[in-house]
Amino acid sequence: MIVCHCRVVSDGKVANAIESGARTLAGICRSTGAGRDCGACVFSLKRLLCEHGRPLPAMPPEVEVAAS
C-alpha cells in the first residue's frame, strides 16, 4: 500500500526502514523521503512506527519515582 503519494513510498519500504534502524518519525522521513512534501502521510508513518517499531526500554526505577 502506498503511504506517501508525493514520494511514492509504500508501507513495505517504511517497515524496511524501521527494521534497518529508523526509530523515529524523522528517521523514517530521512531514509524513505516520505513526509517531506505535503505531510499528509505523517500520521500513517507514526502508526507504522508504532506497529513495527521495537518497544522502548523500561524507565529506570529512580526516574519512575522521581515525581513523588
Rank of each mutant, 00 (worst) to 15 (best):
A67L: 11
A58I: 08
C50W: 09
V14E: 00
S68Y: 12
G33D: 03
G53L: 05
A17W: 04
G33W: 03
E64K: 13
T32A: 02
E62Q: 10
H5A: 10
V9Q: 00
V42T: 11
A22C: 06
V9Y: 02
S31K: 10
V3F: 00
K13L: 14
A26V: 09
R54I: 10
V63P: 01
K46A: 07
L45Q: 02
S31R: 10
C29F: 00
I18E: 00
S10R: 09
R54P: 05
P57H: 08
D11P: 03
E51L: 11
C50F: 12
C38H: 02
H52V: 05
A67D: 12
E62S: 12
V42P: 02
R54M: 11
R23K: 15
R54W: 08
S31E: 12
M59L: 15
G35A: 03
A17V: 05
V14L: 02
S20N: 14
C38D: 07
D37T: 14
A40Y: 07
S20E: 15
V63N: 08
V42G: 01
P60N: 08
E64W: 07
V42W: 01
I28F: 01
G12T: 09
L25I: 09
I28T: 03
A66C: 08
G53M: 02
H52L: 05
R30E: 13
S68C: 12
G35I: 02
G12C: 04
L45F: 00
V8E: 13
I2Y: 07
G39K: 03
F43M: 09
V42R: 08
L45I: 04
V63F: 12
L48Y: 04
A22D: 08
A17M: 06
V14D: 04
G35Q: 01
P55G: 06
V14N: 00
K46E: 07
G35T: 01
G53D: 06
S68A: 13
L49K: 00
E62N: 12
E19C: 09
I28V: 09
I2W: 07
R47F: 06
P61S: 06
G27K: 05
G12A: 11
N16K: 15
A22Q: 06
L45A: 02
V3G: 02
E64D: 10
N16T: 15
N16G: 10
G35L: 03
G53P: 05
A67W: 11
S20Q: 14
N16D: 15
R23N: 14
G12P: 04
H52W: 04
I28D: 01
I2E: 11
T24E: 03
E64N: 09
V65D: 10
P55S: 07
V65P: 03
C50R: 14
L45S: 04
A15E: 15
G21Y: 05
G27R: 04
D11E: 15
M59N: 10
K13I: 10
E64V: 14
R47L: 11
K13P: 03
G27L: 03
V9N: 00
C50I: 13
T24A: 01
V3M: 02
F43G: 05
P60A: 11
S44H: 08
S20I: 06
S10H: 05
G39D: 05
V63Q: 11
R23V: 14
